[in-house]
Design a binder for these strands. Structure first.
Lengths: 223, 223
DNA sequence: ATCCTCAATAATGTCGACAATTCGCCACGG
DNA sequence: CCGTGGCGAATTGTCGACATTATTGAGGAT
């Protein structure tokens, strides 16, 4: 009866469950339960929790176990601010270094994005969005900065606040991405950084809207 | 000043040993040996190594153990670039938010820095330097960014490359810090960010010099 | 001399057991 | 009614033992 998925890296599995929202903020993570759930030993789960704690996705208190870290409204905005600064820098570098292949890949992602927007598929769009940015990170050739932004909990934020629900956001976002693409294609570093900053300023604004929205519709937990 | 209670925590002890250069890049870290050395169990050491791996200070290879991660020349420069961007942002925020107490503390640190420079104590100066920047991070009130820059391996870089050995660097650094202080005192965000960026650009330049210097004096390990 | 095999060694990865700690619950007393 | 103190279950922290995996070195064949 023990159905055990044999190959399961607890770290990646837990991480995915957290950023995708399957595990809710402040939810308790009991080692034994997780071990059973994903078919791994308690040792491996423990190691994964330590990593996630260091990464900031999980809060680890001595003798008290682990919880999914709750990201406050303020912290969510802080994260987006940092992301704006770092991605701005990456966009600038990418403008200088992006290859024809990179541009082709970006173009491909963007056509897909357009399709998903027209189909009203905001989830698929969100994933493509992530891909778009990742392509830019790769083109920038700056592993240190890429790892930092990649490690940011910004994916979880999108889920926690449902920023995609803002009316008209997708279309606008699409235009912003087109602007970024244009600057990269022209190898114009200044323009690329500016476009990226503007894009992420819009994201930050949408985040503010989502926070307000949550407050208006009534929440019990303070930010 | 932080009073450090005798810290038996393997994580902090290892971290300190690495950034201070007591453990050399690529040096192997054998769990049992470390456990013996600092009087802890292998379990605790293991957890510490996982954290340090996630942090980037240690390289952990499956079934092959842990090594002190070697920071290549290119990566060292990448780290300083990221630091410049983030600390620039923090300086801007700090200019708006710094209190009279914060300014007083900065002034105090600076007078000490002057004394150490005149006494030719570059090690003490380096520590004060770190303090100076930390005060600014605190004043900025931006935990997310502060934790990121704090987690950067930039402390270790100073040791690895001996950037303080460059002739005249200390005096120049002192003047740069004074410029930053002036901007903060005037609550001028633009000026603060600019001064901080300029300062860190100089640091980056010194780093380039140190790398060149190492290459000229002959090294066997490629960057 | 060089390459290959294979045992010996050393270190890591994993598991189970047990001690230590926290937390919920309930009886008790003011 | 409310605070208080102490069981008891649940959970984490730690240790030792053992399996697994890399590495080293000697010896032999070509």
């Amino acid at each position: 009866m023990k159905r055990r998925p044999p190959r399961a890296d607890p770290y990646h599995q837990l991480r995915e469950a957290i950023v995708s929202g399957q595990l809710h903020p402040n939810e308790r993570l009991v080692e034994a339960a997780i071990a059973e759930r994903i078919g791994a030993g308690r040792t491996a789960v423990r190691a994964a929790l330590v990593r996630l704690d260091q990464e900031g996705l999980v809060q680890l208190e001595r003798n008290r176990g682990a919880r999914v870290r709750h990201i406050s409204d303020g912290e969510a905005m802080e994260i987006e601010e940092v992301r704006a600064v770092l991605e701005g820098m990456l966009a600038r570098r990418a403008a200088d270094r992006i290859t024809a292949d990179g541009l082709r890949e970006l173009r491909h992602v963007m056509t897909q994005m357009r399709e998903h927007v027209e189909a009203g598929d905001s989830i698929g769009y969100s994933e493509l969005n992530a891909t778009f940015h990742q392509v830019i990170w790769t083109a920038a050739g700056h592993p240190t900065a890429s790892n930092l932004v990649g490690g940011l909990k910004s994916q979880g934020i999108r889920f926690q606040y449902q920023t995609a629900l803002r009316p008209g956001r997708a279309e606008r976002s699409l235009r912003e991405h087109e602007a970024i693409f244009g600057a990269l294609k022209a190898h114009d570093g200044d323009a690329a950084e500016a476009a990226m900053r503007e894009h992420l300023a819009e994201v930050l604004d949408t985040l503010r809207w989502a926070i307000d929205s949550q407050h208006r519709t009534g929440r019990w937990l303070p930010g």
